[in-house]
Amino acid sequence: MIPVPYYLTISAVLFTVGMAGVLVRRNALVIFMAIELMLNSVNLTFVAFARQLAAIEGQVAVFFVIVIAAVEVVVGLAIIIAIFRARSTVDIDDVDLLRG
């Protein structure tokens, strides 16, 4: 059996990759994908800890996170589509009316 710390390490790596994606990429859709990656790395952390501690709470938490992630997809895509209709771009560097 693969030891639990391996899972924790891979989830930390995935979280960091997602974070780098949010900070580096300029396309709103790709940023959004990176955020989803971060959420799922957290899910992996929850499941790994649930296994290690034999606590069911961690697995229950994953369901809540999946639901919230689905809601965020709905809202996020709606906003991104509205932006695309008005400007024909979803590059966040082009969406810059508000500055100060």
Binding site: I31, I35, L39, T45, E72, I79, I83, L97, L98
Partner: peptide
């Protein structure tokens, strides 16, 4: 301007949520 506010709020809000959640996971562990 309202669209842009929504997108900025959404992207950064969702980004911050993942930190909050990762914190919850580590505290759970």
């Amino acid at each position: 301007r309202s669209q842009e506010a929504g997108m900025k709020y959404f992207l950064l809000g969702a980004f911050s949520t993942t930190f909050f959640l990762y914190g919850v996971a580590l505290i759970f562990g």
